[in-house]
Nucleic acid binder design. Structure first.
Lengths: 192, 192
DNA sequence: CCTACCGATCGGTAGG
DNA sequence: CCTACCGATCGGTAGG
């Protein structure tokens, strides 16, 4: 596997380490060792450990929003839009397994200013999903569920994608998104 | 608020710090400062930082399993058992907000032997839920869903309880468990 | 990209 | 429960 550039190599290695050991428990020396250079040389590519985290987190945040916008820009029903948005969310995770894992678990280590910016992006993304569910209720497509709770459930289920990949299940993106959609849309309880 | 014992005070303070900053980023000096003693004095109560983490994680693990066993030891339908088990799960989280948050996010820092023991307990708990869902399908109460995926969804939704508490929603345990159950059992899509 | 090195902080121990 | 302190390691800089 050819490594495109050293900078990318550093970043992908950092993603792996941040995920497995956590941001705080990962040292720049260990990262350097894994990359195959001395620790101070890392600073020719990234100004700080914090900068690495920021790059990873905001890249994923942007991917989520871009994918969502594309999913919704259709003339389909709210139900279909939601299904597409869910699949898109899973696809972003699946195409960035290590990075999205860092995005979910390590964003708390972003420093003050960037942390605030990050939270805003996340809130906007959540709100977009809530609007979609609310529109679906208004149009009569969905049951009159608790919107915030529903979106919470959708995200918590979708964000377990990483664990599903790791488990022995061997599900691909479509199977995960469709399996979750099936349960969420149709419900568990058998209707007689 | 009276602090029962110093040891309990240390533990509850550690839970708060481990949750907000993470296990690796929390120092014993900071913990000591927060408690109001010097760092070396901590070692009269806990042999190590690791020991603190173990106490927290395994206590919660035991509570989950005990609560589940009690929920299932009834002569109700599988559907009712599952609802009760879900409520019990939320109640354990709600009664141990800080500790359960550490349980979910910081267990990765358990050292080798304890890590293996922890994973076994967690796997057994998951399997118990899977059996319940499988029984419900066999008895015709549930739709023929993907069992593992369904249990994954249940846990990922229930484990967001902590976030739901923090959000402005002000839902209590019953409302969270019932809200999630309602969506999960009945589904989002309106049946005509 | 390296060697050499800084000040700060870490988990934990000795000894009382 | 404290003071004093250990060796190790941290993120990052200087200077080339």
């Amino acid at each position: 596997m050819a490594i495109a550039t050293r900078k990318e190599h550093i970043r992908s290695t950092a993603q792996k380490l941040f995920r497995t050991k956590g941001f705080a428990a990962t040292s720049m020396r260990e990262l350097a060792r894994e990359v195959g250079i001395e620790a101070p040389s890392l600073y020719n590519h990234y100004t700080s450990k914090q900068q690495l985290l920021q790059d990873i987190c905001f890249d994923i945040a942007a991917q989520f929003q871009t994918t969502f916008d594309a999913s919704v820009a259709t003339e389909q029903s709210n139900s279909q839009k939601l299904r597409r948005a869910m699949l898109g969310h899973v696809q972003v995770i699946a195409s960035n397994i290590e990075a999205s894992s860092v995005f979910f678990d390590e964003w708390v280590f972003l420093e003050a200013g960037e942390l605030a910016r990050f939270k805003k992006l996340r809130a906007a993304y959540q709100q977009a999903f809530r609007n979609l569910v609310a529109d679906g209720i208004a149009s009569g497509e969905f049951n009159a569920v608790n919107v915030k709770l529903t979106v919470f459930m959708i995200f918590s289920a979708l964000n377990a994608t990483y664990d599903l990949y790791k488990s022995g299940e061997r599900l691909n993106e479509e199977e995960i998104a469709e399996g979750i959609s099936a349960i969420l849309f149709n419900g568990l309880e058998r209707t007689k």
